[in-house]
Design a protein around this nucleic acid. Structure first.
Lengths: 192, 192
DNA sequence: AATTTCATGTAACCAGTTACATGATTCA
DNA sequence: TGAATCATGTAACTGGTTACATGAAATT
């Protein structure tokens, strides 16, 4: 009984699909982005990128075109299919869970990066509000734990816990600021 | 040509060894910690914990004792060996690299959690200073990138980048505060 | 001509996930 | 006695790592 929901997508695959959605690119292009930009928290190793591209293509979410018809190893440019765009939309619109906030913060930020163009400003704002809510709530629950355990904790254990609390609070603040920036009419784009 | 350096240790294994170092515990104890405390960003699934315990034991870093001599499946309590303690010390004392800061922040915080008891206050302070240095430097380099690319970025891409910058700055600030707390003589413990 | 960079690939390995299984103990 | 919890395990799978290989184009 293998799970038939083929819509699962690792964070790396999400990053790849997101990049391809911005503009068609080759495996090498993607590797360069991961190796030289602040998106560098993804592996740029060929052993990760090329198999991932094949998987994604096999699923019909991107399609590669060999530009150079002569050489056997023609550089292949991938672009997003309609199916791929639909998948990406679904993936980005998923409601944020507490588990996301505990285990997959990088995934959430990555989703945000592509969000505006793929699902529009309105959904992006909804995402940011959920994000603020979940990070604030989780920070509060960590703060409760801290108070309950304060006396039992060593200095480093306490400081590590405080690190977590501050980190989630910072995330909530960032979301708040992002919401106001998205609302400020730098550029009116009332679509969606 | 397999790498003979057997000192490699995944973040999960580090967490397990760290817990065992604090007090001997069973696989189930560890699972409970991961499932119910702020250390919950580790998998508590049996498929992760028990194989990891076996690997670590096979390497001689922990040793399990079956408490109940009758039953076949006696609950086994693991405690740290001398070799294990040495390994843990080496692992915690590793200098912090930029790669750690980009890819393994959670590993760094985990190391910090166990640091005071395993390598003493002096080394912990050194760690915190390195941590502050590296996070500050990286935040600055991200800020440079932001200024270079500012005009090219979409709102969400810019905000995502700013998220990274703020996050690293928060980490540096946390380190600064932790350093002062470690220096303040709440409890004089001039060992090491 | 030699080196570097572009560009793609693959084979071996490994740790962690999911899902299921099992037996012992405690509690209602 | 039946359910929940304690406690450990394992089989199948999967995605990413490391390391190596290859061949073409550009640069020196």
């Amino acid at each position: 009984m293998i799970k038939p929901d083929t819509s699962e997508l690792s964070t790396l695959s999400l990053a790849i699909i997101g990049l391809v959605s911005q503009k068609p690119c080759s495996g090498y292009d993607i590797r360069k982005v991961f190796a030289t930009t602040p998106m560098g928290s993804f592996s740029s190793s060929p052993g990760a990128i090329y198999p991932a591209l094949k998987r994604i293509e096999r699923n019909g979410w991107i399609r590669g075109k060999t530009s150079d018809q002569k050489s056997l190893r023609g550089k292949s440019i991938f672009s997003l299919t309609n199916e791929g765009r639909k998948l990406l939309q679904r993936r980005l619109l998923r409601p944020i869970t507490r588990d996301d906030v505990i285990w997959r913060m990088d995934d959430l930020i990555l989703r945000f990066t592509f969000m505006e163009e793929i699902v529009g400003r309105k959904s992006t704002l909804r995402f940011l509000k959920e994000y603020r809510q979940e990070t604030e709530t989780y920070a509060a629950s960590l703060a409760d734990t801290l108070e309950e355990m304060r006396t039992l904790l060593s200095t480093s254990a306490r400081l590590a816990l405080e690190h977590g609390i501050e980190s989630y609070r910072m995330n909530a603040k960032w979301a708040t600021r992002s919401i106001t920036e998205f609302n400020s009419p730098t550029q009116s784009n009332p679509q969606n």
